[in-house]
Amino acid sequence: MLPKGSANLFAALGDDARLRIVSRLCDRGPMSITGLTEGSKITRQAITRHLRVMEGSGLVRGARHGRESVWELDRRRVEEAGRYLDMISKHWDDALLRLRTFVEDRDK
């Protein structure tokens, strides 16, 4: 069963800017807001806002390091989000194998 609040997870991920933040945190590991703002088209304030939304659904968490917070992904939650598509994806893998058996065996 899904942990409580998982529906929020999809809402939190359903935004291009947030997906970009997630993918940067995936690639580079924990980052500060300053690091996340560098090379990004959106403002520090907007990034902070997105991080707060994602923090609310358990997707990322921030920890103080000196003067700045460092943000990192909660990988367990990210994996959960991928599970829905994985399930459907696996059904297709399975269906395709059946189709292969069907068209290859009967044609011999």
Binding site: F10, L13, G14, L19, V22, S23, C26, A81, G82, L85, I88, S89, W92, D93, L96, L99, R100, V103, E104, D107
Partner: peptide, 20 residues
Amino acid sequence: MNTDRIEKQILLRAPLKRVW
């Protein structure tokens, strides 16, 4: 990370008409 779409490919060793 694409949450909207799934894509799968498989090579079927059978004639095109058969697969269709």
